[in-house]
Lab assay of single mutants.
Amino acid sequence: TRVETATETAWISLVTALHLVLGLSAVLGLLLLRKQFPAHYRRLRHALW
């Protein structure tokens, strides 16, 4: 049972790390898009919101 708990903890930390990386890359991508293609960014924002 101890090994299972350790594996679960590892999976949870892995998933958390993946979510963090995905969130950060999404934010960075949006910032880059905003900087380089303001028109595209505006259109995207209108489409999303």
Rank of each mutant, 00 (worst) to 15 (best):
T1Q: 07
T1L: 09
T1Y: 09
T1I: 13
T1N: 02
R2Y: 12
R2W: 13
R2N: 07
R2K: 05
V3T: 01
V3R: 01
V3M: 03
V3K: 00
E4M: 04
E4P: 02
E4Q: 03
E4T: 06
E4Y: 06
T5F: 09
T5N: 02
T5G: 02
A6Y: 08
T7N: 10
T7A: 07
T7L: 08
T7V: 08
E8L: 03
E8R: 08
T9C: 05
T9D: 07
T9P: 09
T9G: 11
A10T: 08
A10E: 08
A10R: 06
A10N: 03
W11S: 10
W11C: 03
I12T: 13
I12V: 06
I12C: 02
I12K: 08
S13V: 08
S13W: 14
S13A: 05
S13G: 09
L14P: 05
L14D: 01
L14N: 02
L14K: 07
L14R: 05
L14W: 13
V15A: 05
V15T: 13
V15K: 13
V15R: 07
T16L: 11
T16H: 11
A17P: 01
A17E: 00
A17D: 01
A17T: 07
L18G: 05
H19F: 15
H19I: 14
L20G: 09
L20I: 09
V21S: 07
V21Y: 00
V21M: 09
V21L: 07
L22D: 00
L22C: 00
L22N: 01
L22S: 03
G23S: 05
G23A: 05
G23I: 11
G23E: 00
G23K: 04
L24E: 00
S25H: 00
S25N: 04
S25I: 10
S25E: 00
A26R: 02
A26P: 07
A26W: 02
A26H: 01
V27A: 07
V27I: 12
L28D: 01
L28H: 01
G29C: 09
G29I: 10
G29H: 02
G29E: 01
L30V: 12
L30W: 15
L30N: 03
L31E: 00
L31A: 08
L31I: 13
L31H: 10
L31N: 11
L32K: 07
L32A: 14
L32S: 12
L32P: 02
L32I: 13
L33F: 14
L33Q: 00
L33C: 13
R34V: 13
K35Q: 12
K35G: 05
Q36E: 12
Q36V: 13
Q36L: 14
Q36S: 09
Q36N: 11
Q36P: 04
F37D: 05
F37R: 06
F37Q: 10
F37K: 11
F37G: 13
F37P: 03
F37Y: 08
F37C: 15
P38I: 15
P38V: 15
P38Q: 15
A39S: 06
A39Y: 10
A39G: 07
A39V: 10
A39L: 08
A39T: 09
H40N: 07
H40T: 13
H40M: 15
H40C: 15
H40D: 04
Y41K: 09
Y41R: 06
Y41S: 06
Y41W: 13
Y41G: 08
Y41N: 06
Y41F: 10
Y41D: 02
Y41M: 14
R42S: 10
R42K: 07
R42D: 07
R43A: 05
R43H: 15
R43M: 15
L44A: 03
R45L: 13
R45K: 12
R45A: 05
R45G: 07
R45M: 12
R45S: 09
H46Q: 13
H46N: 15
A47R: 08
A47F: 14
A47E: 05
L48P: 04
L48M: 08
L48Y: 04
L48C: 08
L48I: 08
L48G: 03
W49C: 14
W49A: 12
W49N: 13
W49K: 14
W49P: 10
W49M: 13
W49I: 11
